[in-house]
Simulated assay, not measured.
Amino acid sequence: MAISLSKGQKVDLTKSNPGLTNITVGLGWDTNKYDGGQDFDLDSSIFLLGATGKCESEKDFIFFNNLEGGNGSIVHTGDNLTGDGDGDDEQVKINLSNVPQSIEKINFAITIHDAESRNQNFGQVSNSFVRIVNDATGEELIRYDLGEDFSIETAVVVGELYRHGGEWKFNAIGSGYQGGLASLVKDYGLQA
């Protein structure tokens, strides 16, 4: 049975699941009905962070235009332009044993594409979640439902996988940002 997390909660991933190597991180969301006349396009982005808490290069930023990183150990399965339907809207496949040692954290974010020009924000988004599935068994191990705590934010860091004592852990972050993807990219040490 999946462990359901609250904001700020940290949990062991590999220690409590011995032998776990291949996982899928699923991200999902729904958009509320509104009369803005524009479609919503939410995107998941992954930032591979070194000891400084920053990306070492552009290759450590995985998104719809760069689907692979960490020497092939982390693969984004592609952009979902609508977010319609149940289940995961976007997925990231990770081979934990092949993630380069220089990567200490893998941060997951959801942003709204062209949020400012479309006058959209996370106050118009509901049912956002991140979950981790064991690829070998299909079992959902961890789930974090973000709740409805957002209003004007255009980007949310939902959580992070991080190394601790040779094991992988997950931290449910749920922090919102204004300035969308460009703001996050800059915070993680890259050029927007």
Rank of each mutant, 00 (worst) to 15 (best):
N121E: 06
G123P: 01
Q101I: 05
V125A: 05
F129D: 02
S126A: 06
S117I: 14
V125E: 05
V92A: 07
R131Y: 04
I132A: 07
D84M: 03
S102V: 03
S117N: 11
D84C: 03
A115D: 04
P100R: 10
V99S: 11
F122I: 14
I106D: 00
G87M: 09
D88G: 11
D89H: 06
N127Q: 10
L96Q: 07
S117K: 15
N119G: 10
P100S: 10
I106G: 06
N98D: 04
Q101W: 00
S126C: 07
I94Y: 05
D84L: 13
D88K: 13
R118V: 00
Q91V: 06
V125K: 12
V92D: 06
S117G: 06
G85M: 10
I110K: 09
D88P: 02
R131I: 13
E104Y: 01
K105H: 08
S128G: 00
Q101S: 08
A109N: 01
P100E: 08
I112F: 01
F108H: 04
D86C: 04
Q120M: 12
F129P: 01
Q124M: 12
I110Y: 03
R131S: 10
F108E: 11
S117V: 13
N98I: 02
D84Q: 11
A115S: 03
I110D: 01
L96P: 00
R131A: 00
K93V: 07
S128R: 13
P100V: 15
N95T: 14
V92I: 15
L96C: 05
D86E: 12
V130Y: 10
V92Q: 01
Q101G: 02
A109R: 12
L96M: 12
S102Q: 04
I132G: 03
K105A: 06
I106T: 13
N98W: 02
E116F: 07
A109T: 09
H113C: 02
S128F: 00
N127D: 08
A115Y: 05
I103V: 15
I103G: 05
S126L: 07
I94K: 11
T111L: 10
S128Y: 08
D89A: 10
K93E: 07
P100K: 15
N107G: 08
N95W: 06
I103M: 06
F108V: 14
F129T: 15
F122H: 00
V130E: 06
N121T: 13
H113F: 12
R118K: 15
I106V: 13
D114I: 09
K93S: 02
E90A: 08
H113K: 14
Q91L: 07
I103P: 00
K105S: 01
E90S: 01
F108D: 01
S97N: 09
T111S: 01
F129L: 08
S126F: 06
L96A: 05
N127K: 12
E90Y: 11
D89S: 11
S97L: 11
I106Q: 04
G123S: 12
R131Q: 09
G87W: 11
